[in-house]
Simulated assay, not measured.
Amino acid sequence: MTGTGSRDEFDVEQTTVELPELGRFLRQLRERSLNGCRRAGGMSRMELATLTGHGAGYIAKLEQGGQATPSPAVVDALADALGCSPGQRQHLHDLRDYRPGEGDRPVTPCVITDQNRIYVDTLTPALAGFVDDAWNVLYANSEYRRVYRRIADPDIANVLLWFFFVPESRHIMVEWEQEALLTVSWTRALMVRNHLGGDQFTTLLDQLSHSTEFQKMWNSGDVALGRHKAEMLVRDLDSGKVLNLRAQVLKWPEPASPLQLYLAIDMNAPPRREGFLSLMAAAPCRAGQPHLMEHDREHG
């Protein structure tokens, strides 16, 4: 892709991104750990082995994928020794049971009804729409489409594709790099935690692999299970105004529905703010998954 928004155009030779693996993530954590004795950072396998009470050979086998799945207690010991964040610790545990291609849960097809559309449309001037587990934008109201320019185009219609292949996204998202990395890191974490897979998700990753920036962010191994701050800065290209958006992705209340509602309000818009805050507070339970996300999914 060239950044024009067309899925038929490409800016780099495609390189398939690596699927998450316990051994690879453990090695990345060890090489970045600040708990080691190396001046430049990182920890040797021997240091990690000493801190956890396991041999360096065992650590090497874990990193190379040649060792049996570690117990939860071993994972916790590794996380303690490495100084992992809560999100990194959770991801290590999630990776224990994750085998790419084995037991993957395909992205469930979603049906948008007329009632769904009416509900989302009535939330204007809030930015609202429906997304699925793969960040496909299934339906969005006029304000969502206006602010996140071109995100609902038929050849995009996906949050991740919008970030990396629509040039306007870099002007709209004031902190584009942080928000793009957050979205990628959350997607990576949720892919493992919810065992997402199937043809649709694989196709999406193949498309994203045409972006060198996506490749770099994805292969960094970073994971996120929440936002770095409550709001995000989004530029309204029509007015030039910077919106201070608080956004959430909420599970749709119908038990069998995989739909997730994206809802964002401008915290600098007091005339309507209280009503929408009440709406968000009364909304059904959160998706527990990522976005355009809190990624609370809270995000944009």
Rank of each mutant, 00 (worst) to 15 (best):
Q90L: 11
R45G: 08
L78H: 05
G57N: 14
I59D: 00
I59V: 12
C84A: 07
A49K: 13
R39M: 11
A77G: 04
L82Y: 02
P70F: 07
Y58D: 02
A40C: 13
L51C: 08
G57F: 10
V75M: 15
L51A: 08
S85I: 10
A40R: 14
P70H: 02
V75N: 09
L82C: 02
L48T: 06
R39V: 10
S44D: 12
S71F: 11
V75R: 15
T52W: 05
E47K: 03
G41T: 10
Q67V: 10
S71E: 05
D76V: 14
G55Y: 13
L82I: 05
R89I: 03
S71V: 12
L48P: 01
E47C: 00
G41S: 12
R39F: 00
E47R: 01
G57T: 15
Q64H: 11
R89Q: 03
T50L: 15
M43V: 06
G53Y: 03
D80A: 07
G65E: 10
L51Q: 13
Q67N: 11
A73M: 15
Y58I: 04
R45V: 12
G53D: 02
R45D: 03
R39G: 11
C84Q: 04
P72T: 07
G57I: 11
Q64F: 08
T50Q: 15
L51K: 11
L51M: 14
P72S: 02
P86Y: 13
D76E: 13
L62K: 08
A77M: 06
E63N: 12
G41A: 14
A56W: 10
L62Y: 11
V75Q: 13
A81P: 07
A68L: 12
T52L: 07
M43D: 05
A40Q: 14
G65S: 12
V74N: 02
A60P: 01
Y58T: 04
Y58G: 01
L51V: 09
K61C: 10
A56I: 14
G83H: 04
L62A: 06
A68D: 15
A73W: 14
P86E: 12
T69C: 11
G83A: 05
R89L: 06
H54N: 04
G57H: 12
S85M: 03
M43F: 00
A40F: 00
G41Y: 06
P70M: 06
A56N: 10
G66F: 12
G55K: 13
Q90N: 08
E63H: 14
P70D: 01
G83Q: 04
A49G: 15
G53N: 05
R89S: 05
S44N: 14
G83Y: 03
G42R: 09
T50P: 02
L82A: 04
S85L: 05
R39Y: 00
G42S: 12
R89V: 06
L82S: 03
G42D: 13
A81W: 00
Q90D: 09
V75Y: 15
Q90T: 12
R89P: 04
K61V: 09
S44I: 12
L62Q: 09
A79M: 10
H54K: 03
T52C: 07
Q64V: 07
G41I: 15
A49V: 11
G53V: 01
T69N: 00
E63Y: 15
A68P: 08
P86K: 06
G87A: 04
G55F: 15
P86G: 11
T69W: 09
G83P: 01
A40M: 08
G65V: 03
L78T: 07
Q90P: 03
Q88Y: 01
G42K: 13
L51T: 07
T50K: 15
T69P: 00
